[in-house]
């Protein structure tokens, strides 16, 4: 067995991952800021003024947490999916596989890189949002815990996607056909209390509902779902995805012959 936690190796993978997305910051950090600015102008400012209040706050204030969360989800996922798949494609994943680096270290290194990128993006988008609406923070630590757990979960999901991917197309299928619909239907732009009862129940099968609501509760103190139930769901998903990622990599699926 490899040492379950090789800290030097972990630090190396994490620094390598951060160096990668910082080197291409125009592709990784700037686009979310531009996209979110457009969302704030169009949905928040122009359309939002006609909508009025939602859950007791202005529509702009209502959508800010969801939009931050949307950036976190997209960036955590795509960072790990593209980086890990590139490492497979260029075969430089072998640099780690021939060395005494444990499966856990590889997972933590890559996921750590994805979390770092998504947190930087979260800060950038929050700063952009603060130009459009004064931000209230009701539960700071809930915001921190929710964003870290969400980023970790989607970084793990991106890793699992990359493990199975055989072409670059394979790492764009899930974001396009699964992630984007789930995010848009995950209560970013509306409160699920607006939906008929049946669709409220259906919506609760969407894990993104829990993340967005816990995060929104941290900002405005209002949520469709109990924030601590939402955190519990997030923890369970993290454990399940983490275990799956470990199992796949440990068996060498997609990376060893």
């Amino acid at each position: 067995m490899s040492n379950p936690m090789n800290l030097t190796a972990l630090r190396t993978i994490w620094i390598k991952e951060c160096t990668r997305f910082l080197r291409i910051w125009v592709q990784t950090l700037v686009p979310p800021a531009i996209t979110m600015t457009l969302y704030f102008i169009i949905f928040g400012n122009l359309i939002g003024q006609r909508i009025g209040e939602m859950d007791g706050v202005s529509y702009m204030e209502f959508i800010v947490p969801g939009l931050i969360m949307m950036s976190v989800i997209t960036n955590a996922y795509s960072n790990v999916a593209s980086s890990f798949f590139s490492a497979k494609f260029q075969r430089n994943i072998e640099e780690m596989l021939v060395a005494p680096v444990s499966t856990l270290t590889i997972i933590l290194g890559y996921v750590g890189g994805g979390v770092a990128r998504s947190l930087i993006v979260a800060v950038v988008v929050t700063i952009v949002a603060s130009f459009f609406v004064p931000l209230n923070i009701q539960h700071f630590w809930l915001i921190v815990v929710t964003v870290v757990l969400t980023a970790t979960l989607f970084a793990l999901a991106g890793l699992i996607n990359a493990v199975f991917a055989k072409t670059f197309d394979d790492i764009s299928i899930i974001p396009t056909f699964v992630l984007t619909p789930l995010t848009y239907l995950g209560g970013v732009f509306y409160s699920i209390s607006l939906l008929p009862e049946f669709w409220q129940v259906v919506s609760k099968a969407n894990p993104i509902i829990y993340m967005v609501n816990a995060f929104r509760y941290g900002f405005i103190g209002v949520s469709d779902i109990n924030a601590y139930v939402a955190l519990g769901v997030l923890v369970l998903f993290n454990i399940a995805f983490g275990a799956l990622a470990w199992l796949l990599l440990n068996r060498g699926i997609g990376i060893r012959s």
């Binding site: 030097t8 190796a9 590139s86 021939v98």
Partner: peptide, 29 residues
């Protein structure tokens, strides 16, 4: 073991120094 594979399997976008220093890091150096 030190392995020199048949095909180039390093990240083409990393610098020479990054490649070798990272590899040492994986071994705990």
């Amino acid at each position: 073991i030190g392995l020199v594979p048949q095909e180039f399997n390093f990240n083409q976008f990393e610098t020479v120094l990054q490649i070798v220093v990272n590899q040492a890091g994986y071994y705990g150096v």
